[in-house]
Computed example of a mutant assay.
Amino acid sequence: MKNSRTLAILVVFLCFACTSSLVTVEDDSYKNFDLTAYKSFGFMDIENTNPSNPEFEKAIDLLKQEVAEGMEARGLSKSENPDLKINLGLVVEEKVQTRTTSLATDPFMYTGQRNYTWQSQEVPVNTYKEGSVTLHLVDSKNNEAVWVGSIDRVVPKKEEKKAEAIKFAVEELFNNIDQN
């Protein structure tokens, strides 16, 4: 069971490694976005749909911290009246990893009747959480999105790895912004 879990995680990472970018940008009109045109940033209010979940608040705080560091590293300063507003979205879903049965690994059993039918089916092998972070950069003057991107990743089960995963996701988002 542990080998299949390790193999599944390896396959997920290899699939992501084969893509040119892990970030999905919603619209081609954002490709001319220039972050250097802005001097200050601020965060929009975030609605917590599950206030009883302390993990959500912790993840949002880590996201804000990483995004603020990324903005400051690019010369923007945090302000109460910013040129650029940042709207963060975070969704975490429980997912089930499955595999398809085959005659080689899951042969049918003879039950005493002349019923020898067998068909392939999906069987669960693991559960995991997938997180999606969406970053909306909104021009304060026009109140219009100037760049929107998102990244989907498997959320690590170990607490100490979650901060690393958030840092990686934010770095990927900024790498995509910097390519413009």
Rank of each mutant, 00 (worst) to 15 (best):
T127P: 06
K31L: 13
G131C: 07
L22T: 08
T111Q: 15
Q121I: 13
I46G: 01
T49Y: 03
V11H: 10
Q119S: 15
Y30K: 14
A104I: 00
T49V: 14
E26L: 13
L22G: 12
E26S: 12
A73T: 14
L90T: 11
N180M: 09
M109A: 04
N32Q: 11
L22S: 14
L22I: 02
K95G: 03
P82S: 02
Y128A: 11
A163G: 01
N115G: 05
S29K: 06
R114Y: 03
E164H: 03
M71E: 03
E93A: 06
A37E: 14
Q97T: 08
L62A: 14
G89F: 04
M44W: 10
E171C: 04
M109W: 00
F168L: 07
S52G: 07
K2W: 09
N115Q: 13
L135Q: 10
V133T: 05
S52A: 15
V96R: 03
V91N: 07
T36H: 08
S150Y: 02
L35K: 11
K141N: 11
L63E: 10
K58D: 05
E55N: 15
E172Y: 02
D45M: 07
L90G: 04
L84R: 06
T117D: 11
V154H: 00
Y116D: 12
S140D: 13
T49P: 08
Q113A: 07
L88R: 09
L88W: 01
V146S: 12
N53C: 05
L7I: 12
A8M: 01
W147E: 03
T36C: 08
T111K: 15
R74I: 07
V138N: 05
N143T: 05
T6G: 15
Y30T: 11
D106S: 09
S140E: 13
V123G: 03
G89L: 12
V138P: 00
F16V: 03
I46W: 02
E93Q: 05
Y30P: 00
K141F: 11
N142K: 07
L84D: 04
S4P: 01
V23R: 00
C15S: 10
Y110T: 14
D178L: 10
K95H: 10
G42H: 00
K64W: 12
A59V: 08
E122A: 03
F108A: 05
E94N: 09
I166E: 01
V23Y: 02
N176C: 12
V148L: 13
Q65A: 09
E159T: 06
L35W: 14
S20L: 12
N142A: 04
K2T: 09
L103Y: 06
E57S: 05
E80P: 00
D28N: 09
A68N: 00
E80W: 02
M71N: 02
F43V: 10
V146D: 10
V138E: 09
